[in-house]
């Protein structure tokens, strides 16, 4: 993947709100969210259940619409985009990783990864070449001809990450991707996500596990639909120079 590192965010959420229901049963799932995610950046969204983190992700990916506010993916406002435009954007720009992998059981790993490209009109042959290249680049080449039920959960999830980022897509939205995995395997999935972001992708990771959130560059804390706080990563090397503990 040769992504030029531009300062332009891949994903911009602007004053995003989402209200479910109305009147007495009105629930404010999101209250004025602002968030930019740049190429090369992995952002973790943490919060207790009901804090709005999954709603945030489904809206960022165009799977749900906000009550107000804007969602801009690669310069396109998906809240005003037409159906066709939105579908194309979802195929070409946005990759999803779900807790339960969502690979198609009847297709091999390589076929699963090439599917979004074929849907996008790329020839089957070219899609397969791209798919194998993506798997190879992510150290998953040996899994190319395996079916999902011949792979471990961790392997399936890594294939799902390859599928999310095949082609020119550089936004990956991951909803509790480690939820069904033991912690060692979960770690390998996060390491791959981290590596893809280091290579230029932009990632949003929703998790309630601090250990996995810690792989991110930035951790955003969500409470009752609002961002209440966030961390930034310091230069890790500064830790190695005679530091004892953060004073």
């Amino acid at each position: 993947m040769s992504t030029p590192l531009t300062p332009q965010p891949v994903l911009r959420l602007q004053n995003l709100t989402r209200v479910h229901g109305s009147g007495a049963t009105e629930v404010h799932a999101l209250r004025g969210i602002d968030l930019d995610v740049h190429p090369g950046e992995l952002v973790a969204v943490m919060g207790p259940s009901g804090s709005g983190k999954s709603t945030l992700l489904t809206i960022a990916g165009g799977l749900d619409v906000p009550t107000s506010g804007r969602v801009i993916v690669e310069d396109t406002d998906i809240t005003t985009a037409g159906r066709k435009e939105l579908a194309a954007l979802r195929r070409r720009s946005i990759g999803y990783v779900f807790q339960d992998y969502n690979l198609i059981p009847a297709l091999t790993a390589a076929e699963n990864v090439s599917l979004p490209r074929e849907l996008d009109g790329v020839s089957a042959r070219k899609a397969r070449v791209e798919s194998l290249a993506a798997l190879e680049e992510m150290g998953l080449g040996h899994l190319a001809d395996r079916f999902p039920d011949e792979m471990s959960g961790g392997q399936q999830q890594r294939v799902a990450i390859a599928r999310a980022l095949v082609g020119d897509r550089r936004l990956v939205l991951a909803d509790e991707p480690t939820g069904a995995l033991d912690s060692e395997t979960g770690e390998s999935v996060l390491a791959l996500l981290r590596a893809r972001c280091d290579a230029g992708a932009a990632g949003v990771l929703v998790t309630h596990e601090p250990r996995f959130a810690a792989w991110a560059d930035r951790v955003v804390f969500l409470r009752d639909g609002a961002i209440v706080d966030q961390t930034v990563r310091s230069e890790a090397d500064s830790l190695l120079t005679g530091r004892v503990a953060d004073a």
């Binding site: 959130a213 560059d217 951790v219 961390t231 890790a236 190695l240």
Partner: peptide, 22 residues
Amino acid sequence: QAQRRHTVKAMQDYTRLKAQAL
């Protein structure tokens, strides 16, 4: 929350170092 931000940030730093060590 102030402690949580600090603690998670420390985890981010340690995790970065761990990835380098690996």
